[in-house]
Design a binder for these strands. Structure first.
Length: 114
DNA sequence: GTCTTGACTAAGC
DNA sequence: GGCTTAGCCAAGA
């Protein structure tokens, strides 16, 4: 198999700075896969054991976790985000902590990975 | 080869 | 704010 897209997604997620979150769609764009948000979900679901990927920085387009509130994964994501200074407001993260497709962020992140 | 599923998104009501 | 519908594409059965 040659899951090149998956590696691209992993790299994209890894580039998300601490204290920041972004949507699956944003990660997909950054990975060179615009519109493949669901592929990001698949890739994250199939993360290898021992990974250090900040998957918890990836949220849905509405700034809510992909997991139902109260679930183990939801609580874990919430805890990890809070540890980085991103406190969930109810089930959502602050707008200021979400997204990276902006002039400043674009200059910081660059048009594409190396 | 076809059908179902999915850590999704956007648009419409 | 929420729910429904349609579109999307790869993996697994």
């Amino acid at each position: 198999m040659n899951p090149d897209y998956r590696d691209a997604i992993y790299q994209a997620v890894r580039r998300i700075p601490a204290g920041r979150t972004c949507a699956y769609g944003d990660v997909a764009k950054m990975a060179g896969l615009p519109g493949r948000a669901r592929l990001v979900g698949r890739a994250l679901k199939e993360l290898p054991a021992g990974h250090t990927l900040p998957w918890y920085r990836v949220l849905r387009a509405d700034r809510t976790p992909a997991f139902p509130p109260g679930s183990d994964e939801f609580e874990r994501q919430k805890k990890l985000l809070q540890a980085e200074g991103v406190e969930l407001i109810g089930t959502r993260v602050p707008k200021a902590c979400f997204g990276f497709i902006a002039d400043e962020d674009f200059a910081l992140w660059g048009p594409k990975p190396d």
